[in-house]
Design a protein around this nucleic acid. Sequence first.
DNA 1: CCAAAAGTGTTGCTATTACACCCATGG
DNA 2: CCATGGGTGTAATAGCAACACTTTTGG
Lengths: 257, 257
Amino acid sequence: MALRDYNHPYVTVDLLLFSVIDNELAICLTRRDQEPYKDQYSLPGTFIHEDESAEGAVDRLLKDKLHLPDSIYTEQMQTFSEIHRDPRDRVISIAYIGIIPDKDMVDVPWMEWFTIGKSNVGSYRLVSVATTASNVPTAASAATATSEPPSFLSSNLGFDHDRMLGIAIERLRSKIEYTDLIFRFLKDTKCFTSQGLRELYQAVIGKEINRGNFTKYQMNTYIEHGLINKTGSVVVGRGRPADTYSYIGGEKLWIKY
Amino acid sequence: MALRDYNHPYVTVDLLLFSVIDNELAICLTRRDQEPYKDQYSLPGTFIHEDESAEGAVDRLLKDKLHLPDSIYTEQMQTFSEIHRDPRDRVISIAYIGIIPDKDMVDVPWMEWFTIGKSNVGSYRLVSVATTASNVPTAASAATATSEPPSFLSSNLGFDHDRMLGIAIERLRSKIEYTDLIFRFLKDTKCFTSQGLRELYQAVIGKEINRGNFTKYQMNTYIEHGLINKTGSVVVGRGRPADTYSYIGGEKLWIKY
DNA sequence: CCAAAAGTGTTGCTATTACACCCATGG
DNA sequence: CCATGGGTGTAATAGCAACACTTTTGG
């Protein structure tokens, strides 16, 4: 039987782009301006074209819709194929997780950030992050012409994106423990402190970590796996100056300790 | 822009069906009888129909191609979307892992089992498993009419199925450690011994585990997480009778110990 | 010199491993 | 009564968490 004999669905990629904002994990969403799910928030996504892989589609999405370089870290999460997940037509979506160190790298009016509160099980409390000076004038207003943007969403995204978000957060929180994912959140990978890295770590997993132990064990584990180096320089502040580290690569994955 | 304006690829599911045969992890493959990759082995797969999800397609595949009930354990693994992964046309494939306790449950001539040797990195040595009495007469011969089946394959499957196999084995080996996956390999989930479970465990991870510790700690961990019970009965054999256990469910996932 | 912040040490608990020992059965 | 296998104990080690102590700066 020839391939052409089969009917087949549309395929998209959806991106769960994360960052840490004010010590809280945050997700980048867009408000839908048309049906279905008009005025609800959803993940940025795009159809996969004939001449590109899913990864290619994600890179194009990053460039065209988010105005980001395609060097952004992304990884495939899971594929969603329920028949009616898009009420318009049969659409299968491959969800990707992305991480950027700074929300302001996304400087387009149609994308907005929401922090993910220290959540209870199941659904998350998404709190709108004030738009930056740079994109306040141009947008946010344009996207919200019809009605004011909510200050928070009780995790009520369009399509099956709520479910995707839950799975993504769970995945992030677990992979942080045995991979180098945390370094994707770093604004300056060539000079950071134990304190700075710990704050990111805490934001992602949503709980506190003992300061002393983090410096002693976690940083040492990263060093042992060739992921980071002590730079030798220090950062002065209120108290004793902090050692600084530099991310250099090494093993991306390890069995914890 | 309407959905219909987009060109879109075909979508299939491919199944990596595993079992343990003679204390070795094994994979169920089919020999291709047409181009591309004619006479090479590949994973069973099928196109996703309009009226079914990917999971639905996997269930249909299980039923129609493998003559298995759709109660077989399956889980989504990863989606493969490289443009030329199928030389005929643009085909995206969602790979699923499946597990059955007994190779003889697959009783069709066009499927064959290969054990996965204690492997080195990268590729695996797949060794053909002698077909069972029940399907020797009907098939194996039919499928191999053109040329004799190799006694082993140096992991040279059609399409990108080599890569899928590698990822699947890695996934199995790691998930065994913190999930109840191992119980999917059990022929009798209501009566098994520590010894029996350990042999399956060893087959999957490809290395030995200390007997005493497995009985003491691993079995206890399962009990503590509500996965198994001691039945109270024993199995007599050469030496001291072995306690038997029953799989009852409980948490499917736990953070190790 | 004192508060603040960061590095480092101590202690106890728990998990993991290796190994030994004892127990129950069949021959 | 002894070989065989299976359950259980012990000791050494390593990982982890809580917490205390020391170090180095700024005010």
